[in-house]
Nucleic acid binder design. Structure first.
Length: 891
DNA sequence: GAAGCACCT
DNA sequence: CGTCAGGTGCTTC
């Protein structure tokens, strides 16, 4: 692209801002002129500045990548190539050309609906959206460079006569419904909608049956005689043919009813007979869509989803394209395909690839070795599949949604009260939506965008799932308040706010939970079989990536049950690989780390109360929010310090101001139990004891000591090949150590589990109830704690973070085994169908009303007080089960 | 888990 | 004057 007068500096930037004409209907435009207008309209705006910034970030990424590339040796490349080749042949073997996958896409959907409903618009350039943002435009408007995701005011400059119609989602939804079940389902009852106007269908079975269908079943009439269609009075002959040409004057395609085929004329009552081929079937489907809705659709037919999607774009609008089911055809097709056309490769990826000289899928294939060295595993695996023309061949029915959110853009808003009330509104909307779908989620995320377009998200995860306005707002409000306080005395100048809820726990049945627990146990069984930490020992199950013994997690083939799960997003397939490794990672670090983290968190709250350091606080609050000051703990190895920083970081992050709450939980806790602790103390994540200091340096030093003590106590036999996908850094991290110990216990664990489970099972849960005392203990411990010299290893009791019972031992190994048992038995308990936890928990929170009443928190906060106290243990169990809730088979 | 991104429609 | 809204997933810490 030659962009005339643009300076080189701007050139890169243009790629971000400039017209993206890879969409249908935008060929042969005067790009230079259009881009000029776009630039002139944008320049100097805050938005522009922000885009500039982001562009630079991408450029930096590219620079970094190029540096990396420069350091790659021939040898590395060779090795990588070998690996790539191995994977390639694996993948090749998995190629399945037997499915007939169709991707349907309504043409300029919103705009088309509007034009249908308002014929005056038909021959005018129009777009759907608002002055600030357009959702889509019709093909007339596209000629001017007006397209989706373009602000209306710029579009107006490009096309002064542009008519902008506001969106009418209800209407689009209605149209969508007209098409989905009544038509799509006929061809594939399991079709997968992508959006209102798009869907994937697996035609394979339909085509099989269709072969034996009589003509009558393949005959469809023109709209005039189609029942159920609100008849437009004067519409009759000519309409069917008239329709699309009006919408798309210069459409290269005709309506699905081929002029040659059946000749069905256009007279009212005419009908059309469709053949049995895939193309005929798809044409039939499109015909029916058009007859029913007066709207046209395009379609792609290919052996997999990735290709089908690309194909549907090929003859758009109102056309279809079939890619034959042969390897040769696929490879041919792929060769010249620009990478950008592929679902999953967007602006940034395109630019990064282009920096490597890759623009087509053919290049992609040629550079795989290099790519494997420069990109993450998931990414290059994706590239690999794309370059081979592979994609999902199996359409998954809608999975459960994973999050739900609502957000709003508005003119600058900086008054806190206003912000809070808006926040509440958002929560109300969200709660309403949640109710509709009967969902409950544990994680609430607040999204903020300031007037400079900087986006910030802040999340908090509760130990239980929530759904009501009050519950959600209680969290969101705290998150918001924290942000407000973080920037004070300045104001938060917002232009957008959003609330999202995720980490759903299904309300009606706990199948997902249980399943995952089962999965977890199965895994850990396999796991404990061997002495090493290898979790994936499932023989026989192999992902495509099996061969790759690359230094990574993939050395262990993910557990995949029936074929690969292949969502329409190519990432999904691979992502499963990482899913598993992730699970493993979490499994290994999970319990202790979480337990300690939580413990510390609770501690932090009380500690925070006591912190006196004001302005000179070492905590770093940057423009982006809370940050941990990495320069503080004097760590040299990033990872060594990482965990600890997380701990201290959390604490550090606490606002230095007195009554300020950073984390909702803490905030509430603090108001609940102001036990008048005056001295400062922190809990060591290793020894679980109070350290009477607020000085992080001192604290870290203590931890170091603990760790080295622990390390020496340990049998250092587990240092072989950490399969941790995080970092093999050993021995320094408190939690690592703990984990190692846990491993040691693994063998016994199994037996113990069973024993203990029978004997003490319920008692543990019960003993866990009086946690309130326990947490008070914690806070009260501080003042009584002697100073640092006391913290050698002859010190006082260890308290199990799970059952909260003091353990009469000084030996961490023993202690950890105890905790392990606690953890596992409960998992077993749950597994056995006594899902008391899941049901129990919410009710606890509900029944306990907040009598305490805190000055700063409304009644809505009630949930958290009790939740916090009596569920620390449960919290972790639930966390655990949640953690496991990602695993292999959802089906 | 939390935060920030990238990507898609 | 002025750049959506809602979702998913990946990466990094």
């Amino acid at each position: 692209m030659e962009n005339g007068g643009a300076s080189t500096k701007e050139e890169g930037f243009l790629s971000r801002m400039a017209l993206n004409d890879n969409k249908a209907g935008m060929e042969g435009l005067d790009r230079d002129k259009i881009n000029k207008i776009i630039m002139e309209s944008s320049k100097g705006s805050r938005f522009y500045e922000n885009e500039l910034k982001r562009e630079q970030q991408v450029n930096q990424r590219i620079e970094k990548m190029m540096l990396q590339k420069a350091q790659i040796t021939e040898q590395q490349l060779k090795k990588a190539q070998a690996q790539v080749d191995r994977l390639a042949s694996e993948l090749e073997r998995s190629r399945d050309l037997n499915r007939v996958i169709v991707h349907v896409d309504m043409d300029a959907f919103y705009a088309a609906v509007e034009m249908r409903d308002c014929p005056e618009l038909k021959d005018k350039p129009m777009a759907v959206g608002s002055m600030s943002m357009l959702s889509t435009s019709n093909y007339h408007a596209r000629k001017f460079g007006v397209r989706a995701a373009m602000p209306g005011f710029i579009a107006k400059k490009l096309c002064p006569n542009l008519i902008i119609v506001p969106t009418n989602f209800d209407q689009y939804r209605a149209v969508s419904d007209e098409v989905r079940k009544p038509i799509f389902a006929d061809y594939d009852p399991h079709f997968q909608p992508l959006s209102l106007d798009e869907a994937y269908l697996d035609f394979t079975d339909h085509l099989e049956q269709r072969k034996s269908w009589p003509e009558s079943l393949r005959t469809h009439r023109f709209r005039t005689s189609i029942e159920g269609q609100e008849k437009l009075p004067q519409e009759k002959e000519g309409e069917a043919e008239d329709l699309s040409p009006v919408l798309f004057e210069d459409s290269p395609n005709s309506s699905p009813c081929l002029p040659g085929a059946g000749g069905a004329g256009v007279a009212g009552g005419a009908f059309e007979v469709f053949g049995t081929s895939a193309e005929d079937a798809v044409r039939e489907m499109r015909f029916r869509i058009e007859q029913k809705t007066m709207l046209t659709a395009s379609a792609g037919i290919a052996p997999n989803m990735m290709l089908a999607k690309v194909c549907s774009d090929k003859n758009k609008p109102n056309g279809q394209y079939r890619l034959p089911s042969s390897r040769e055809a696929v490879m041919d097709f792929i060769q010249n395909l620009p990478v950008r056309k592929v679902f999953g490769i967007g602006k940034v990826s395109e630019k990064m690839l282009s920096a490597l000289g890759i623009s087509s899928c053919a290049h992609l294939g040629q550079q795989m070795a290099l790519l494997s060295l420069l990109f993450s595993e998931t990414a290059w695996h994706h590239f690999m599949r794309v370059s081979l023309g592979l994609g999902s061949t199996h359409i998954e029915r809608n999975e459960e949604r994973k999050s739900m959110s609502t957000e709003r853009t508005f003119r600058e808003m900086s008054a806190a009260e206003e912000q809070l009330s808006l926040c509440r509104e958002l929560c109300e909307d969200l709660a309403e939506d949640m109710k509709k779908e009967g969902l409950k989620g544990k994680t609430v995320t607040l999204k903020l965008k300031n007037v400079n377009f900087e986006v910030k998200t802040r999340a908090w995860t509760l130990p239980y799932a929530v759904a009501t306005v009050d519950e959600i707002f209680a969290v969101a409000k705290d998150l918001l308040k924290t942000e407000i306080e973080n920037v004070s005395p300045q104001l938060l100048r917002l232009r957008l706010m959003g609330v999202r809820i995720s980490a759903f726990v299904s309300t009606d049945d706990k199948t997902p939970l249980q399943k995952s627990i089962v999965g977890f146990l199965k895994q850990s069984k396999a796991d404990s079989g061997g002495p090493s930490q290898h979790v994936c020992q499932k023989p026989g199950k192999e992902l495509l990536v099996n061969g790759s013994t690359q230094s990574g997690p993939l050395a262990c083939p993910p557990v995949v049950e029936k074929g690969q799960k292949q969502g329409e997003v190519p990432w999904l397939a691979k992502q499963r690989g990482s899913e598993v490794t992730q699970i493993r990672g979490q499994q290994q670090q999970s319990f202790f780390q979480r337990a300690h983290a939580q413990r510390l968190r609770l501690q932090a709250e009380s500690a925070n109360k006591q912190e006196e350091r004001h302005g000179d606080s070492p905590s770093v609050i940057t423009s982006t929010g809370i940050h941990v000051d990495k320069s503080e703990g004097s760590p040299t190895k990033a990872h060594e310090s990482e965990r600890r920083f997380t701990f201290s970081g959390k604490r550090e992050a606490l606002p230095n101001t007195e009554n300020v709450s950073v984390l909702p939980l803490e905030a509430h806790a603090s108001t609940l139990e102001r036990s008048g602790t005056d001295s400062e103390s922190l809990t060591c994540p290793v020894c679980c004891r109070q350290v009477k200091t607020s000085n992080l340096y001192v604290f870290n030093k203590h931890i170091d000591q603990c760790l080295s003590n622990v390390s020496t106590k340990l049998d250092p036999n587990t240092d072989t090949d950490s399969d941790s996908d995080m970092e093999p850094e050993k021995g320094h991290q408190g939690c690592e150590v703990m984990d190692d110990e846990r491993e040691e216990c693994d063998a016994k664990k199994e037996k113990e589990r069973e024993k203990v489970e029978q004997s003490k099972d319920s008692s543990v849960i019960e003993t866990s109830e009086p946690t309130i005392n326990e947490s008070e203990d914690i806070s009260e411990q501080g003042p009584f704690e002697p100073d640092e010299s006391h913290y050698d290893h002859t010190g006082p009791v260890l308290i199990c973070p799970i059952c909260q019972v003091s353990q009469d031992t000084d030996d961490l190994t023993v202690f950890n085994c105890h905790v392990d048992v606690c953890l596992n038995q409960d998992v077993l308990h749950e597994l056995r169908g006594q899902t008391s936890l899941t049901t129990d928990l919410p009710s606890v929170t509900v029944t306990n009303s907040n009598v305490t009443g805190s000055p700063t928190s409304p009644p809505s906060k009630k949930a958290r007080g009790p939740g916090r106290h009596n569920t620390i243990d449960k919290f972790f169990k639930r966390q655990t089960s949640y953690t496991q809730n990602v695993p292999p088979h959802r089906k």
